[in-house]
Computed example of a mutant assay.
Amino acid sequence: MTPKRASISDIAKELKLAVSTVSRALSGHSRISEATRQRVWQLAEQLDYQPNHLAAALRKGRSNTLGVILPNIDGHFFALVMKGAEAVANQAGFNVMLCQSNEDHAHEAKNVETLMNAQVDGILVSLARNTHDFQHFEKARQRNLPLVFFDRILDGSEVSAVVVDDQRGGYEATRHLLAQGRRRIAHFGGPQHLNIFKDRYAGYRQALEEAGVPLEEELVVLCHDMSLEDGAAGIRQLLDLPQPPDAIFSSGDFTAVGALDALKEKGLRVPQDVALVGFGNETFSSLTEPKLTTIDQRCEEMGGAAIRLLLEMIQHDTQTRTPRKIVLRPELLKRASSELV
């Protein structure tokens, strides 16, 4: 049986003091004598007393805890976002409670309930890949609980968010391939209801149009999971075309590396036969052979900016005002997978 956790009442009863006196002694109140404070703290240590922060939060109306919902923490991107987020939150005196949706809408909804039950002061969210609506966030909105989305939001949604300029990233990636003399540039895209994949695809189309290169639908492969397997399957599909591509812009690094491995298995050289650009600047992108050209998303800056926006909403009660969006500029990192040395 789990031993009963010592409470303030237990300390008060043992020392024959009022509960209010013990509470003030534990919080260092100036009205309590030094002798009484020492008696209280000595017994508290003997009983292994642990303060109930949740109860204190309910009394104060604030927990100084922020909730974060991520699709996963498998890759470099979300880990660095969390690094930036926690640095800003901790500096402001807030703790961070992390939940993973595992790319599942139902699990994401449970995460929201869990964080609300934990009395967090605000929630930071990057949506699961199969989330198509905001219905599970309505209860949080009804409670005026501040919500900030980052990276992934639903296309056309009006929410406070911090994102990278994904269209510009897609545009610069494709324009770079065009500058290498490539003209049959394929695209690996993700679910188009999410802003990041729709905007990266839009940037790809924009660059082709400016260069006078027609968009060919047979060169566009929409992937469900943006996984290594999706990249390999996409390569098999593209190589079956009468005229295969001479370059690929992938909306994610995982899919790009899956494509890289599949191209090698087919005896094709990168970038001589097929040039390749990814998106995300995952850690492994600089370890592949050849190293992968990719788009950096300024992950730590995104996490920090998202937390600052959330804290601003909490401190100034601005969650009911017009949603605010912060857009960061991406950076093209040119490496050997797209350029002939």
Score class of each variant (00 low, 15 high):
Phe249Gln: 04
Glu138Arg: 13
Ala207Ser: 07
Ser227Pro: 02
Gln206Tyr: 07
Gly231Ile: 05
Glu229Asn: 12
Pro146Ile: 06
Phe197Lys: 07
Ala140Glu: 04
Phe188Asn: 08
Ile248Thr: 04
Ala202Trp: 02
Glu138Leu: 12
His187Ser: 09
Pro214Cys: 03
Val159Gly: 09
Gln192Ala: 15
Asp155Lys: 15
Glu172Lys: 00
Glu172Ser: 02
Ala186Cys: 12
Glu229Lys: 13
Ile185Pro: 05
Ser160Thr: 12
Asp165Pro: 04
Gln237His: 14
Ala247Asp: 05
Leu228Val: 03
Ser157Met: 00
Asp151Tyr: 08
Pro214Gly: 08
Asp230Val: 04
Asp155Met: 14
Pro245Leu: 06
Asp246Trp: 09
Ile185Lys: 01
Asp199Arg: 15
Arg141Gln: 14
Pro245Trp: 07
Glu217Val: 09
Asn195Trp: 12
Asp240Ser: 15
Gly169Ser: 05
Val220Gln: 09
Pro245Tyr: 01
Glu172Leu: 15
Gly189Tyr: 01
Gly170Pro: 04
Gly203Trp: 06
Leu177Lys: 11
Arg205Cys: 15
His132Leu: 14
Arg200Tyr: 11
Leu222Met: 12
His187Ala: 12
Thr174Ile: 07
Asp240Pro: 05
Lys198Glu: 11
Asp166Gln: 12
Arg175Ser: 12
Asp166Gly: 14
Glu217Thr: 14
Glu229Val: 12
Gln180Thr: 12
Met226Ala: 07
Arg205Gly: 03
Phe134Asn: 14
Phe188Cys: 07
Gln237Pro: 06
Phe134Asp: 14
Ala173Thr: 08
Ser227Trp: 00
Ala232Gly: 10
Asp246His: 06
Arg175Pro: 01
Ser157Cys: 09
Glu218Lys: 14
Val162Gln: 01
Pro146Glu: 02
